[in-house]
């Protein structure tokens, strides 16, 4: 499915054409998903560090 605004408005529009309001809310949702995924990755990164704790130190030494 193609989402976009055709340049020639006399032709039938192709795909779903978003209103400015819909485009704005989609962008906001995309940003929110991006932030949530980044925080989720960071959460698991730090949980891993905490759970490993000092156990990795002897191997590194």
């Amino acid at each position: 499915m193609t989402i976009g605004r055709p340049e020639d408005t006399s032709e039938p529009r192709e795909g779903v054409v978003l209103t400015p309001e819909q485009a704005k809310s989609r962008r906001a949702r995309n940003i929110a998903i991006g932030v949530a995924v980044a925080l989720f990755v960071a959460l698991f990164y730090f949980v891993t560090i905490v759970k490993l704790g000092g156990n990795v130190v002897p191997r590194a030494g």
Binding site: P12, R13, E14, G15, V16, L18, E21, Q22, R29, A32
Partner: peptide, 25 residues
């Protein structure tokens, strides 16, 4: 556009969501 694509005018277009992140929250 592939063969699978379709042409819609505005009136018959499926309603795209307008929910903001705050609505999901």
């Amino acid at each position: 556009m592939s063969d699978a694509s379709f042409i819609l005018d505005e009136a018959s277009a499926p309603r795209a969501p307008v929910a903001a992140p705050g609505d999901y929250f």
